[in-house]
Amino acid sequence: MTENIVKVERVKKIYKQSRSEQVVAVNDVSFTIKKGETFGLVGESGSGKSTTGKLLMGLEDITDGKITFMGHDVAAIKGRKDLLAFRKNIQMIFQDPYASLNPRMTVKEIIGGPMRIHGLVKSQGEQDAAVYDLMEQVGLDPAYANRYAREFSGGQCQRVGIARALALQPKLIIADEAISALDVSIQAQIVNLLRELKKTNDLTYLFITHDLSMVKYISDRIGVMSQGRLVELAPADEIYNNPLHDYTKSLLSAIPTADPESERVRRRIHFDGLTYTDAEYAECSLVEIAPDHFVYCHPSEVADYERKANAVFSLV
């Protein structure tokens, strides 16, 4: 069996706005990420997907629950030595390719800096050679190594960000809306690059996005988030071909098509949000409705979801 490199168990994150106000950004979320897979996390803005990524990175403190990375409790990693080892194995590609790069540093310094801090290179010459190799891997000319971020396009800057993430040879890369700020054609190039790098570098991805059409292309499994909760979890093909939760159906119905005529008459599915009472929420959980297909629901809804799943299978 493939080992779980990440295990998220009933994680909650609450931001306190004031003494009397608080925002529950992530609420009772559980999932695993297997070594070597790409796990897609999708949902609308404010659904809690990016906060989940930050909690996994240790950039935010967990309010409740537990996140385990490579067998270690993320919340318990405190000392400088332990934090360096943790940071080496988990890296992030950020949404804004310009804001994520230091404008005062050259590409060579941006990519090579982490190698020097973690002691992966012994000399400047070894560091430069490693930087040039990484630039070639991500499709950048090594001759551009002494340029600054402002001299690159958005797609090129994102390639620099990918090279920086690869510099420490991490076990997991979190791509947080890594393509949303790019043109459509460049998005496809970056996603293809990520897929190729996954094969050549034995990587595991957490791919966070609101782009449902793109997440299917890159992901092995997909988790769908709404109102801070994981409402559906299944293999990518299952999510697209046999969605069970109303929110997932609503998201899929919003994907635009290339045909103006069919787009004009296509039916959108409206979702009113999760409407359980506090008492019902206490009984809700992710239930395996079909093999490897989980839906967040109340015990009273399980039979109805199973009926829907069986109806789908009977048509196949």
Rank of each mutant, 00 (worst) to 15 (best):
M115R: 12
T52R: 11
M57T: 12
D61C: 13
L56T: 10
Q127W: 00
G40L: 06
A99T: 09
D64T: 12
G71P: 00
T51L: 07
S50I: 01
E109N: 11
F86D: 02
R104K: 05
G79R: 08
T68K: 11
Y98K: 08
G139D: 03
P97W: 00
S123Q: 08
L55I: 10
A145T: 15
P103D: 02
M135Y: 07
E109G: 09
R87G: 05
G40E: 05
V107T: 11
I77G: 07
L101R: 02
S50T: 12
G53P: 13
I62V: 13
A143F: 00
I117W: 00
G125H: 13
L55C: 03
A85C: 04
V138W: 06
K81G: 01
K88M: 05
L55M: 07
N146Y: 08
V42S: 09
S100E: 01
L134R: 05
D61V: 12
V121N: 00
S45A: 04
S45V: 05
N146R: 12
K78Y: 09
G48L: 06
A149T: 15
Y148H: 10
I110Q: 02
N89G: 03
D128E: 15
G58Y: 03
K54G: 05
D82R: 10
R87W: 04
K66L: 09
E126D: 12
L134E: 06
M70D: 14
S47W: 06
K54E: 15
K49Q: 09
S45R: 03
K88C: 05
I77E: 04
